Lab assay of single mutants.
Amino acid sequence: MTYKLISNGKTLKGETTTEAVDAATAEKVFKQYANDNGVDGEWTYDDATKTFTVTE
């Protein structure tokens, strides 16, 4: 399945996607992506749209 990340960081804003077997796997990928880009904030997940959002 395709999962989307919306980043509302102070230094990184935008969207990216990943293919993953489940939401937990996608979350690990996205949290590593955010960490690699210096984004640390509040996370939410919408199962209906398969979208994670991180806001700093």
Rank of each mutant, 00 (worst) to 15 (best):
D47L: 06
V54M: 06
T55F: 10
E19Y: 15
T44Q: 09
N37F: 10
K4L: 08
T55E: 07
D40H: 14
T16V: 14
D36G: 05
L5H: 01
G41R: 02
E42H: 12
Y33M: 08
V21Q: 11
Y45D: 00
G41Y: 04
M1C: 14
N8G: 05
F30T: 01
Y33K: 03
L5R: 00
T2L: 13
Q32K: 13
N37A: 10
A23C: 13
D46F: 03
E19G: 05
T44I: 08
T53W: 10
A20G: 03
I6S: 04
T2P: 05
D46R: 02
V29W: 15
N37D: 03
N8Y: 14
S7R: 05
T11K: 12
K13E: 07
T11P: 05
N8A: 10
N37L: 13
Y45H: 00
T18F: 12
T2I: 14
G9V: 14
K28Y: 08
T18Y: 11
F30P: 00
A20T: 04
Y3H: 04
T25C: 08
V21D: 10
A48I: 11
V54H: 02
K31M: 07
G38R: 05
T17P: 02
F30D: 00
N8R: 11
G14K: 12
T55Y: 10
G9F: 12
T11S: 11
D47A: 13
T44L: 08
K13C: 15
D40K: 13
S7M: 15
G41M: 03
A20R: 01
Q32W: 05
T16D: 04
A24K: 11
K13H: 10
D46C: 08
T49K: 07
L12I: 11
T49E: 05
D36H: 08
K10D: 08
D47K: 07
E19N: 13
A24H: 09
I6N: 05
D46W: 03
A48H: 09
F30R: 01
K4S: 06
K4R: 12
T49P: 00
Y3Q: 04
T51D: 00
T49G: 03
T11Y: 13
T51F: 02
N8L: 13
D46Q: 04
T25D: 08
N8I: 15
E27F: 15
K13G: 07
D22E: 04
W43N: 00
D22L: 03
K31V: 05
Y33S: 02
F52I: 01
N35C: 14
T11Q: 10
V54C: 03
E27Q: 09
D40E: 13
D22C: 06
D47Q: 09
K10S: 11
T53F: 13
T44S: 13
A26W: 00
L12W: 14
T53K: 06
K4C: 09
G14P: 11
D22M: 02
K31A: 04
V39R: 02
K4N: 05
D47E: 14
V21R: 11
T51Q: 04
T17S: 10
E27M: 14
A26L: 01
D36S: 10
N8Q: 11
A26G: 01
G9Y: 07
V29S: 05
G9A: 12
K4I: 13
W43C: 00
E15Q: 10
Y33I: 09
Y45W: 03
W43R: 00
N37C: 11
T51Y: 02
A24W: 08
D36V: 10
A23M: 11
L12Y: 12
E19C: 15
T2V: 13
T44W: 08
T49V: 05
I6D: 03
T53I: 09
G38L: 06
D40N: 13
W43F: 05
G14H: 14
V29L: 12
A23F: 11
K13N: 11
L5W: 04
Q32F: 05
E19T: 14
L5T: 02
V39Q: 05
D46A: 03
E56W: 10
F30H: 01
Q32C: 06
L12S: 09
S7H: 14
